[in-house]
């Protein structure tokens, strides 16, 4: 479903050229559960942003569902992002003045869906995340775990094919971290392709396929037949 060919991403920092990604070749099939690990600055977030179309490669090709998305216009890229990709961030990035329900409805609003249809989907997503009673609460009235669940609901409400999570538990205590991970894994079980960027070895080991990055290169790409779901 995702095919990266010779992807390269360079940044100009001062007068120095930084190679955030070098010759990345990666194939992801639909429904996979992948963790991307590595030290800070290894390029794992850049890779995730690249896959999420938030960043453009300096060179190389990116095919999503058989379509070369690097050459799309801004409008088409935004549309692809809206329809096929969901994001979950470390800092949740909920809009503080909007309620949980309104935050979840945002992608539907941007897509121009009618309010009636929207409400149905939002209610469904709230129930699925177990936060239906928090629908009218604003982010500052929610706990960290609840906030991240709202963020996940927002990322998945439109029904994307891929969910990209950048340190989804990085800002949570371990208990709510595990809850959030379980929700993500449940979504994966239901067929959603899941890519998780993390520092956390334990979290990384839960994934069937683990990618280790270093200095903009993929160091290992290992496939585990028996995921260690037993010891969370």
């Amino acid at each position: 479903m995702i095919q990266l060919t010779d992807i390269q991403r360079d940044f100009q920092v001062g007068d120095q050229q930084v190679h955030a990604l070098r010759d990345i070749n990666l194939q992801v099939a639909a429904g996979e559960y992948i963790s991307i690990m590595g030290p800070s600055g290894s390029g794992k977030s850049t890779l995730l942003n690249m896959i999420g179309l938030l960043d453009q490669p300096t060179a190389g090709h990116y095919q999503l569902d058989g379509q070369d998305v690097t050459t799309l216009s801004d409008e088409q890229q935004a549309r692809t992002r809206r329809e096929k990709i969901g994001f979950v961030f470390q800092f949740f990035h909920l809009v503080p003045r909007l309620t949980a329900a309104q935050n979840i409805a945002l992608p539907l609003v941007l897509a121009g869906m009618s309010e009636k249809e929207r409400n149905k989907k939002v209610t469904q997503a709230l129930t699925q995340m177990g936060i239906a009673d928090r629908a009218e609460h604003r982010p500052d009235q929610l706990s960290g775990g609840q906030r991240q669940r709202v963020a996940i609901a927002r990322a998945t409400v439109i029904g994307p094919a891929v969910l990209l999570a950048d340190e989804p538990t990085g800002n949570l205590d371990s208990a709510s971290g595990i809850e959030v991970v379980k929700i993500l894994e449940q979504l994966n079980t239901n067929g959603l392709t899941l890519l998780v960027v993390t520092h956390d070895e334990a979290l990384g080991k839960r994934a069937r396929r683990r990618i280790h990055m270093k200095d903009g290169l993929i160091e290992h790409d290992t496939l585990q037949n028996h995921p260690s779901l037993a010891n969370p």
Binding site: T80, R81, F87, H93
Partner: peptide, 16 residues
């Protein structure tokens, strides 16, 4: 800034 970045991540094109 973050809110606008978020809108973009959620699929809002420049025009929007």
């Amino acid at each position: 800034t973050t809110e606008i970045g978020l809108l973009k991540a959620l699929g809002a094109p420049r025009r929007q």
